[in-house]
Amino acid sequence: MKFGYTIIYVKNVLETVAFYEQAFGLSRRFIHESNLYAEMETGDTALTFAGEEAAELSGLAVAPNRKDNLSAGWEICLVCENVATAYSHAINNGATPLLPPEEKPWNQTVSYVKDLNGCLVEIASPVRK
């Protein structure tokens, strides 16, 4: 077994893709013609977005992610070399600041923002050994 991908259910897939391109510098890999599903270029494991109505079409119920709600009990982590620059760039492009970059005892710089849907995004450096 291996981890294949993460799907985040969102109110608007196209707006979310545009936000991740602008705030985090990710590139879109694929957008379905229905605009209810998209994949971002993130390496071996894809970050994907699906419209909330896609969950309903599958017979699933999901709690909506909203900017003003308490974030759900998960996060995604985007790894980069310059966390301070990436954190500032994300905030300047619509992310909500939560925790500024901080050096951790395990030799990693970590920060947190919320995306336009209220989802937690960790911006972190690789762990240095």
Results as ranks from 00 to 15, higher is better:
M1T: 15
M1R: 10
K2R: 15
F3V: 11
G4Q: 13
T6D: 03
T6Y: 05
Y9V: 01
Y9L: 02
V10I: 10
K11S: 11
V13L: 04
L14P: 00
A18Q: 09
A18M: 08
F19T: 02
F19R: 02
E21W: 05
Q22H: 07
A23T: 03
A23L: 05
S27C: 06
F30Y: 10
I31P: 00
S34D: 05
S34E: 02
E39P: 03
M40L: 13
M40N: 03
E41M: 03
T42H: 00
T45G: 03
A46K: 00
T48A: 06
G51I: 01
A54L: 08
A55N: 03
E56M: 04
E56A: 09
E56V: 10
S58K: 12
G59Y: 02
G59T: 06
G59S: 07
A61P: 00
V62W: 00
A63S: 12
A63I: 11
A63V: 14
N65L: 09
R66I: 03
K67H: 12
N69W: 03
L70W: 08
S71R: 04
A72S: 08
G73W: 11
G73E: 14
W74L: 09
I76Q: 02
I76F: 05
L78N: 06
E81I: 13
N82D: 15
V83L: 05
V83R: 01
A84G: 11
A86C: 14
A86K: 13
Y87K: 06
Y87W: 15
Y87H: 12
H89C: 10
A90T: 11
A90M: 11
I91C: 15
G94M: 10
G94D: 06
A95H: 09
A95N: 13
A95R: 09
T96F: 09
T96G: 12
P97L: 12
L98K: 11
L99K: 14
P101W: 07
E102R: 13
E103P: 00
K104L: 14
K104G: 09
N107F: 14
T109Y: 07
V110Y: 14
K114L: 14
K114M: 07
D115E: 12
L116G: 02
N117F: 02
N117G: 09
G118A: 08
L120P: 04
E122H: 04
E122C: 11
I123S: 02
A124Y: 08
P126D: 09
V127N: 12
V127C: 13
R128Y: 13
K129I: 13
